[in-house]
Nucleic acid binder design. Structure first.
Lengths: 348, 348
DNA sequence: TATTTTTACGCAAACCTTCCCGATAACGAT
DNA sequence: ATCGTTATCGGGAAGGTTTGCGTAAAAATA
């Protein structure tokens, strides 16, 4: 009772034609008489013939599918990015195969091997926060597998990359806080080696220095699991508030960290923004409904997914090997709300 | 410079063996001498041989992949469900191929055809809100393609189904509001024909009747696009507040509707819960950070994804055709917060 | 009419793997 | 000496499709 799709061979047998004739008729070759063509087309329509994509893949050595490697799906940023990926891939006739690294290096390696052996035509990758060694990608890339990195990228591989302008985002957020009177601005961020971490840290640091404020190492906390472990964010918040000169403002990088920090602050009953102003990187869909409404930096997740996919398909479908690669930095959206309201009262 | 993986034929040529011998040696057949076996295994290891899964799929007529059809990925419920799906599928060696219907019937049909022709081994489906005709699934199901429905199901197809206990969830929410003193409880929900809509409506209605309250048609608003169109939710809220006897409480079904309603209420500056109490179905991860904190019904999304996938794989891998199917109703989580606080002051 | 061109189609290989058979040789059993 | 077993391996088909090449008949040209 297994699913028995009709093949080109069945059509040939039914019509007394060879498979090659049927195949050619189906793709409208000029060397097939129009009546034969018509006959085949009609019969194929009647029996609802669909070419077997697996056989096609075997023949063409391509699978019309692209693999996606992200740390997790159930995350505002990534689910929106995947939405963008799917929107383009679908229109171009590609399937999207998803895998999650759960921020684990081993898991990432296994997933990538899995996808590669599955003959995906290309890979869309956002690195896990544990990944320092990217040789598993280098191997595949050298063998000619198209790869495009997005969000969390590596500069050890020369290919297209799509990132948000994290430097500017962090810079602007910091300047905003400074202008609103905050002077002791802390930063809770992701794993040290991640590209996004470095970019944001740089923007934060430069904004401080350019405005005559010191950069204080103590005010920067790294969450090596990217906030996957709730405790690490809580500890970071706790440590900051324990400091002798506790910060009066906080910039949280990444969705998870932002959420974790807000929950921790709520638990500790810290008044926002009176005791601590907060600006968060987040793609949450209802920041204005939070209490207080949250000043946010929103990543152009959907667009990043779209652009990355377009670039990937461009590589896949290119006749000649591509030598010119670009790194697209896309603009974030900075929306000021109450959690970073201007400092009014004097605080110690 | 295209990716050239080593095949069983290459190994055979290199070692002076036939492909069949190599194949058998690779899977440890007893009819291959142990030295030949050793030789082959070592060489395969050396050249990093990986069986071509596409050729395998063609031969075995299975692809080790399962297709997922949901209305959208960038949605708390579905992204969490997909997470559950992926967690099981990954461990059982299946790939997950995702497609979105965007609540469109046509898109759903196309996606399903696409996935089926792509030889997925089975389908995990949550119906679009436009879908009333499920013959595209019936066709495939009759041809033997395993399908498991989750969340939004149909009773026109007899197979495994995984749902949340929506009846109980809506019932409990309604009773909770009644106990807190609310008497005019409205309900903004999804498209009429959706199973979840009916189940929830039933729970809501019975809770009213059992507590001696009238069921008022005017208090039920359907969003035919499931909240994808922000305007429809806003209008529903608006219509409810325009009523002569305007409701004093509101139950919103589905994530999108809840979010849309809260935004509309915020815009209209309706005080929650003083002017209107709210209980929302949502899988938002920070309901306690909302203003006011939101009383929620949380769907067991991750678990639903897991269970659905397990049931699907059970069908796929079953030797004999399965005749006994189950509908698993999983418990939701009801968390009471401030948005449905007990009525204290008297209101008209 | 003889020759070339065109038309319309079939054959078979290729993509990679598995597996049913058949082949061969060695060997013990009858 | 003949036969059946067992061990070890190769041949070839099958799975569905595309495509280069070959070839027959029909049509066009000389």
């Amino acid at each position: 009772m297994r699913f028995e799709p009709v093949t080109i061979k069945d059509i040939g047998k039914a019509l007394g034609l060879s498979t090659s004739t049927v195949s050619r008729a189906l793709r409208g070759s000029h060397e097939i008489s129009s009546e034969t063509k018509k006959q085949v087309l009609e019969y194929a329509e009647k029996v609802n013939y669909r070419p077997n994509p697996i056989a096609l893949s075997l023949k063409e050595r391509r699978s019309s599918s692209i693999g996606v490697v992200v740390c997790e799906i159930a995350n505002n940023f990534f689910s929106q990015a995947i939405n963008g990926i799917e929107s383009i891939a679908y229109n171009r006739g590609y399937h999207v195969i998803i895998s999650q690294s759960h921020e684990s290096y081993e898991r990432e390696v296994v997933n990538v091997q899995h996808l590669a052996s599955r003959s995906v035509d290309g890979l869309l990758v956002s690195l896990s926060s544990e990944t320092t060694d990217v040789s598993h990608f280098i191997n595949l890339h050298e063998k000619g597998l198209p790869i495009v990195f997005f969000d969390r990228v590596t500069n050890e591989i020369i290919t297209h990359k799509v990132i948000a302008d994290n430097y500017k985002a962090a810079y602007d957020a910091t300047v905003h806080l400074i202008h609103n009177g905050y002077k002791k601005i802390a930063h809770i961020t992701s794993a040290t080696f991640l590209s996004i971490t470095k970019e944001r840290l740089e923007g934060y640091k430069n904004a401080l220095l350019e405005n005559g404020l010191p950069f204080n190492e103590q005010y920067v906390k790294y969450c090596s699991h990217g906030g996957m472990v709730a405790q690490e964010v809580e500890e970071a918040v706790f440590d900051l508030l324990k400091l002798k000169h506790k910060p009066d403002a906080l910039i949280t990088a990444s969705d998870r960290v932002t959420v974790g920090a807000l929950i921790a602050l709520k638990k500790l009953q810290v008044k926002i923004p009176d005791s601590l102003a907060v600006v968060g990187f987040t793609n949450n869909n209802i920041p204005e409904l939070l209490d207080p409404s949250l000043t946010t930096i929103r990543m152009p997740a959907f667009e990043m997914g779209q652009v990355a996919t377009e670039l990937l398909i461009r590589i896949i479908e290119s006749k000649r090997p591509i030598t010119e690669f670009e790194t697209r930095a896309m603009q974030t959206e900075f929306i000021i709300r109450n959690s970073s309201a201007a400092l009014t009262v004097n605080k110690n």
